[in-house]
Structure formats: structure tokens, C-alpha cells
Design a protein around this nucleic acid. Structure first.
Lengths: 97, 97
DNA sequence: GTCGTTTACGGGGATCGTAATAATA
DNA sequence: TATTATTACGATCCCCGTAAACGAC
């Protein structure tokens, strides 16, 4: 699993639709997005979406995964921001200055 | 940034050494690991490691990033486990049964 | 001089985009 | 029938491994 899977799934879950999530939020083609989601479901061993003609709906597992995925993604962004912030205070190491 | 970067960095930080982290924990070649770490530092805009002949040492930013990266990775694993657990309770959707 | 990291180069796998197909309401 | 997701296929990009070079103690 990679962060791409989380980003893709969150976008699909929020849009409730693979097509619009692909072109209006992720800027990738629908086939790519569809396969990434399939791969994620396969790795988890469970379906996350219920596909329909009017879009997609989350399964129970999908709803649970969505909540956790959002937190995980925010945590990653927090990690990057924290590192940048620390770097501004002490550009190299604690033994400088 | 991808989860691979977090996994690689954590292994290097814990081993204090690129070579041993590569072959004893990540099972990849050192050059691959070195480039991934470089790419991560470049994306963050700051150094995470101080390279030396006896291995590597963490910068201040590296220490901060390590703490957050560990949490993020655990959160991702928790997301997967939560989804699998939810799937065992309700295999498809809430409207089943 | 030895240990460890970095660059050079070629190969392989995964992702991607376009186009065609299937499925559902 | 119209909208959406999926499969087929070819191309591209990124990561990886081996080998050589660089740097620090």
C-alpha cells in the first residue's frame, strides 16, 4: 500500500463517483483510478465500494477505512511540516551555532 | 511522498546506517535506498541525515520527522486492520442481513 | 587503506492514457 | 439509451540492481 492509494480512495469516497474524482480532483484517467482502487481492495482483502450506475457507495469497511485514511494522510502532512519547521530553527544539526 | 519514503527513512534512522538498513531490514540495494532518502530530503527541502564514514546521524529536522513518520505509518496499518475487521462483521454493506 | 555513501548505466515492473467493451438503471 | 465502470493495449516513468567512483576517518 502507498499513499497514492489513500489519496485516490479519499477522493472517490468524497465525490461518490470515480469519473469526477479522476478528472476534477486527481487529474488522472478513470481506468487508472479504477485499477488503483481495485488493487487497494485486493490488498485489504475486502471491498470498499459498491459500484452502481450513478456512482459508488461505501461499504461498512469503506467507511471505516475512510476515517482512518484521512487521519493517516493528515499525519503524513504534519510530519513534513514539522520537519520543515524544525529545519528553519536549526538548519543543520543541534551542534551548529 | 509515498509510504516507501517513510519506511525507508525509519529503517535508516533506527539502524543509523544506510548499508545495514538496506540489506538487513529493507532487502534493497544501498544505492536505491540512498536515492530514496535524497529524494525525500529534496521534497521536504531540508536534510534529515548527516552522513559520516561510520554511518548516519539525524539532524534536528530528522528527529522531528522520525517521530511523526512512525505515527503516520502506524495509522496506515491501523486503517488496514480496521477495514479488515469491519469487513468480517459486515462482509458487504450495512443493508445486508 | 578501509568502510560507507554516492553517481552511472542498463533493465524491469508498475502506472498511465486512449479506445473499446460490459453493465446497470 | 445514456451514464458509469471495466478491460485491452501500447507507451512512459520510476524504481531497482550491479559496478565504479568519491569522501571521511
Amino acid at each position: 500500500m502507498e499513499l497514492r492509494h489513500l489519496r485516490y480512495f479519499i477522493a472517490v469516497a468524497e465525490e461518490g463517483n470515480l469519473t469526477v474524482a479522476a478528472e476534477k480532483r486527481l487529474f488522472v484517467a478513470q481506468p487508472s483510478l479504477s485499477r488503483q482502487i481495485r488493487g487497494l481492495e485486493q490488498e485489504l482483502g475486502t471491498d470498499l465500494l459498491i459500484r452502481g450506475a450513478r456512482g459508488v457507495e461505501l461499504t461498512a469497511a469503506g467507511r471505516v477505512f475512510l476515517d482512518h485514511a484521512r487521519i493517516a494522510l493528515l499525519q503524513v502532512e504534519a510530519a513534513a511540516e514539522a520537519a520543515r519547521h524544525a529545519a528553519r530553527r536549526k538548519p543543520r544539526s543541534s551542534s551548529d551555532f
